[in-house]
């Protein structure tokens, strides 16, 4: 059972301690993750590397090129019309169930990992979210 679902089941039953459980999702502002200049190999601010491995809640928009029936997409701070994507401008999201493009702002919860991931010599992501829920 995922954590949000677990919380929704327990909420009517218990009162004490819920605030602690609910606040275990660290709210992360996607603007803070994406609004700094960065080059491959460059250092990230300590405040951002400290989020590695944290359970977070984050809001943002799916990249326009998200296809139907995918389990991975880019989440960005604003839905831009460009195909050009810098690794420090998005969070790479992985989900268990297939999704398709959704134009509205999304709220995601899951585990964040921070740091360069490379494929074939190219940095393909700086932030990755293993999402447990999307609303």
């Amino acid at each position: 059972m995922n954590r949000p679902l677990l919380l929704s089941v327990l909420l009517p039953l218990i009162t004490a301690g819920i605030a602690v459980a609910a606040s275990s999702w660290v709210e992360v502002n996607i603007m803070e993750l994406t609004q700094f200049d960065w080059e491959p190999g460059g250092e990230l601010p300590d405040s951002i590397t400290a989020l590695d491995g944290e359970s977070i809640e984050i809001k943002g928009y799916m990249a326009l090129d998200t296809p139907e029936g995918t389990t991975t997409f880019r989440l960005s701070y604003y839905e831009c019309g460009c195909g050009n994507a810098q690794p420090n401008h998005f969070v790479q999201v992985d989900v268990d169930d297939v999704v398709g493009y959704r134009p509205e702002r999304l709220t995601l919860r899951g585990t964040l990992s921070v740091g360069e991931e490379t494929e074939d010599g190219f940095v393909v992501s700086l932030y990755r979210l293993k999402a447990e829920s999307i609303e």
């Binding site: 990249a63 050009n84 994507a85 810098q86 190219f122 393909v124």
Partner: peptide, 8 residues
């Protein structure tokens, strides 16, 4: 290439 690869 992928959107993130093209500029690099």
């Amino acid at each position: 290439g992928a959107a993130v690869v093209r500029p690099q």
